[in-house]
Amino acid sequence: MFQIGLIYLFIVTVGYLILLRIDRGRTLLSLQTAGRSLTRLIPLLVAVFGLVGLFQVFLSPAQVEQAMGASNGWLSLLVGGAVGAVSIGPPLAAYPLAGSMLEAGAWPPAVAAFVITWISVGIITLPFEASVFSVRYALLRNGIGFLMALLVGLLLGVLL
C-alpha cells in the first residue's frame, strides 16, 4: 500500500511540475485547494480509521457474517443498503469501512450496496433535498436510487 501511494504521489507531483510551467497561478491555487480539502477532512479520517480498528477487534467475523453474510441473501443486501442510506459522509470514508466488512466475510453485493447508498442515498439529507427540489423528487430519487444500489450489488455478485 505504501509503495502504491509513493508511485501515485510521484505521478501527481510530476503533473504539478508540468502544470506549474503552463499556468503558475492556477497550479498554486490547485495546491491550495488540495491542502484545504485535505485538512478539512482530517477529523473525519481519524474517526473513520478509528472505527475500522474497533470494527476489526470488537466485531467477530461470525457477527458480520450473521448480519451481512452470503447465507442471508436478501436480508444482507437490505442491511448493507440501509446502513449506507442512514449514514452520511464523503466517499473516501466509505471505502475503509467497506474493506473491513469484506475482510470480515460480508457478502460482496451487500458491501457494494453499502458503498453506493452511503454516497448517493441520504436519509439525513432527505429534508434538505426535498426543500431544494421537491418532496416528490426527493422521495422518488432516493427510493429508486436505493433499489438501484441493491440491483448493482446483485449484478456485481453475478460478475465476481
Partner: peptide, 24 residues
C-alpha cells in the same frame, strides 16, 4: 484496535495526499 487504526491510516496516507493533489 487503536494500533490497527494507526497502521491502516498511515499505510494509505500518502495515497490520500496524492489523490487530493489530483482533486485540487
Amino acid at each position: 484496535a487503536l494500533q490497527i487504526s494507526a497502521t491502516t491510516l498511515s499505510s494509505v496516507l500518502l495515497l490520500i495526499a496524492a489523490v487530493f493533489g489530483l482533486v485540487g
